[in-house]
C-alpha cells in the first residue's frame, strides 16, 4: 500500500533525479550512476530519519550525514536543495568556476556538507571519530555514512569497521549502496567483495542485508531498524540499480562518471517524470 506520505517522498525522488541529470548534463561532467542508485536511500534518510534543521545547519544537536562516496555530489547537492539548504537555482552552478558546489564534497560548502571526500574509503573513519566525540560529550545523536560497494575494496573501510566494534560504538550506521558496478566494470569482475554481510558480521556489526534500495517503505524500515540498534554499530546493505530511473543508464558501467550526450539528455528527461 502506498501511503500519502510516500507519494510525497516519491515526488521528491523524481525531482531529485531530474536535478541530478540536469546538473551533470549542464556541467558536462559528474557522476550520475551512483547518484541515481542512492536517491531513495538519502531521500528517506533526510525526510524521515536524520535529525537536522536546514534553517540552522550548525545546530549542535544535529545528526551527521557523511558522504563517503564523495563523487556522488549531484545527489548530495540535489538533496540539500530539495530540503532547503540551498536554492534550487544554485544547482546549475555545479562544477563551475566560482561555485560552492565542487565536483566532490567539500566540508562546509555549502553548510550541510559535513566532510570532505573524493578519495574513497575515508568516510567511515571520519564518522567514527565524530560518533566517538559525541559519546564523549554524552550526546545521543546518530552518524550515518554512505559508501559504495566498490569502495568496500579500500582497506581503510575495514580498519574503521574493526575499530567501531572494538569501541562498542552504536549510533553509527553504515549505509552501503550495492549497485554492483564501480568505475571501470562490474564489481564482481573487478574485486568481488562478496559476501559483504558476512564480513561486517564477522567484524562485530549488526547487519541488515538485501534491502531493496528503491522501495521507499523498505528503505524506511531498514533505516529505522539501524537507528535503533544498540551496543554495536549497524550496517544496512541496499541492493540497488546503478543509473536507476533512466533505462539506458541502468546497470550500465558507462554511466558511472560520464555525462549524457545532447540526445541522451533529451531521452533521459523524457523518461524522468516531473
Amino acid at each position: 500500500m502506498v501511503t500519502v506520505a510516500q507519494t510525497d517522498l516519491q515526488s521528491r525522488t523524481r525531482r531529485i533525479r531530474r536535478h541530478i541529470v540536469n546538473m551533470v548534463y549542464g556541467a558536462k561532467s559528474g557522476h550520475i550512476g551512483g547518484s541515481m542508485s542512492s536517491t531513495e536511500i538519502l531521500t528517506v534518510l533526510y525526510d524521515r530519519i536524520l535529525k537536522h534543521d536546514p534553517a540552522n545547519p550548525a545546530w549542535a544537536e544535529r545528526d551527521r550525514f557523511i558522504m563517503s562516496k564523495g563523487h556522488c555530489t549531484p545527489l548530495q547537492y540535489a538533496i540539500l536543495a530539495e530540503f532547503g539548504y540551498i536554492p534550487v537555482e544554485e544547482l546549475s552552478t555545479f562544477r563551475q568556476k566560482g561555485s560552492r558546489l565542487q565536483g566532490h564534497s567539500v566540508l562546509g560548502k555549502p553548510a550541510g556538507v559535513e566532510n570532505s571526500a573524493g578519495s574513497l574509503g575515508m568516510g567511515l573513519s571520519f564518522g567514527l571519530g565524530i560518533r566517538l566525540g559525541m559519546r564523549l560529550r554524552g550526546q545521543e545523536n546518530h552518524v550515518y555514512v554512505l559508501m559504495g560497494d566498490g569502495e568496500q575494496q579500500e582497506g581503510q573501510v575495514w580498519e574503521a569497521a574493526m575499530a567501531a566494534a572494538h569501541h562498542h560504538v552504536d549510533h553509527l550506521v553504515a549505509l552501503i549502496d550495492r549497485n554492483g558496478i564501480q568505475n571501470d566494470d562490474f564489481t564482481k569482475n573487478t574485486m568481488d567483495s562478496a559476501p559483504l554481510e558476512d564480513k561486517y558480521r564477522a567484524f562485530g556489526w549488526d547487519v541488515r542485508t538485501d534491502v531493496d534500495g528503491h522501495d521507499l517503505a523498505a528503505v524506511e524500515a531498514a533505516l529505522t531498524w539501524a537507528r535503533d540498534v544498540r551496543g554495536k554499530p549497524a550496517c544496512v546493505i541496499f541492493n540497488t540499480t546503478k543509473g536507476k530511473g533512466v533505462s539506458f543508464m541502468e546497470n550500465n558501467p558507462n554511466f558511472h562518471g560520464a555525462p549524457p550526450t545532447d540526445e541522451e539528455y533529451v531521452r533521459a528527461m523524457e523518461e524522468l517524470p516531473a
Binding site: 573513519s125 571520519f126 571519530g129 565524530i130 566517538l132 574503521a160
Partner: peptide, 11 residues
C-alpha cells in the same frame, strides 16, 4: 589511516 581520518571527525 583510520586514526587520521577519525581525528578529523573528532575535530
Amino acid at each position: 589511516q583510520n586514526m587520521i581520518s577519525a581525528a578529523g571527525g573528532f575535530a
